[in-house]
């Protein structure tokens, strides 16, 4: 029996649906691929899950410099090489260290003594293994002078196999460390003078010694040790530890009824007068007196 509306026997023509499922499937696959590619390019590296090899370029440089700093202490070449290789360099790990030193040296890293010091350690590491870069030329002369080797705490250099055929042979355990290694430069210690000590009253910050350590242009200098002594006790606090207060800032909490002498050990004479706290009023609020002391580089 043929249906009445199909008199000539042709199959019923399906009506086109809302979707073309083949096109939808193909575009879905293309979309997934596109989304994945986008996350590969701009995707997240999750907080607390990054490994050194995943570091972005500038942070990678700093990590490599840290490896060189550790090597300057330990003299442990296999350990340093292991860490450099773990960073999955695209080329020779020491060559990449030379590139890192070169890039940092060209980007203002050498403006400070600390930068010069750190970069000289990197140069010492890669040049001791026959590599060269541009950092040697960027370093000031005194940083590249020949000098005694840095203390090697753990020289386990025997039998270390390098992955690179071009690498010169490493010294054996009985051999002395390469004489061409560069010296760790001693960082000159600046001297300071306590220029001002003023009391203030702040109910939010009672009984505080707020010290500032600045250079002759008034720029904050981090990492400077300030000593406070009272009775037979002493404490050290350091500038620049509270990033939100600037490089110059350091503070110390006083106690009522105690007199404090403040100086910078080996860098500044004690302040002429001792500091102590006592009652003061900020508006109508009773508080305890605080002090601001400024050490200026001389």
């Amino acid at each position: 029996m043929m249906p009445r509306d199909q008199p000539n026997g042709a199959a019923p023509k399906p009506t086109p649906g809302y979707f073309s499922y083949p096109v939808f499937s193909l575009s879905l696959i293309a979309g997934i691929a596109l989304g994945l590619v986008l996350t590969r390019i701009h995707g997240p590296v999750q907080h607390g899950k990054t490994e050194p090899w995943q570091l972005r370029v500038d942070d990678r440089y700093h990590y490599q410099i840290a490896i060189a700093l550790e090597y300057a202490h330990s003299g442990d070449l296999p350990r340093a090489m292991k860490k450099l290789i773990a960073m999955r360099p695209a080329q020779d790990p020491l060559g990449e260290l030379a590139e890192a030193a070169c890039a940092l040296g060209s980007s203002g890293y050498l403006r400070s003594d600390s930068g010069i010091n750190a970069l000289s350690k990197a140069v010492a590491l890669y040049s001791s293994q026959g590599r060269a870069g541009c950092a040697e030329e960027l370093l000031p002369l005194q940083a590249t002078d020949s000098a005694p080797d840095p203390p090697a705490e753990n020289a386990r250099e025997a039998g270390f196999a390098t992955p690179l055929p071009t690498k010169p042979p490493l010294p054996d355990a009985n051999a002395s460390a390469p004489s061409s290694r560069l010296a760790p430069t001693a960082v000159p210690r600046p001297s300071f003078e306590a220029r001002s000590a003023r009391s203030f009253c702040d109910a939010a910050n009672p009984a505080l010694i707020e010290a500032r350590v600045v250079d002759y242009l008034g720029r904050g200098i981090p990492g400077q040790r300030i000593r406070v002594r009272w009775g037979d006790q002493a404490d050290i606090f350091v500038s620049g530890l509270k990033g939100d207060r600037g490089d110059a800032y350091a503070d110390f909490q006083m106690e009522e009824g105690v007199e404090y002498a403040i100086d910078m050990p080996g860098a500044a004479e004690p302040l002429g007068a001792n500091l102590s706290t006592g009652a003061c009023y900020s508006g109508n609020r009773r508080s305890l007196k605080s002090w601001r002391v400024t050490f200026v580089e001389t």
């Binding site: 989304g35 994945l36 590296v45």
Partner: peptide, 30 residues
């Protein structure tokens, strides 16, 4: 298809299978 696919791709690339690209920062180290 492209819209749903892209959303799915972004989700999978962002959460279950995050990028192993070299864009991490020192504070994000394990």
């Amino acid at each position: 298809g492209l819209l749903l696919g892209s959303l799915a791709g972004l989700y999978f690339g962002w959460f279950p299978f995050p990028s192993h690209s070299r864009s991490g920062a020192l504070p994000n180290l394990t």
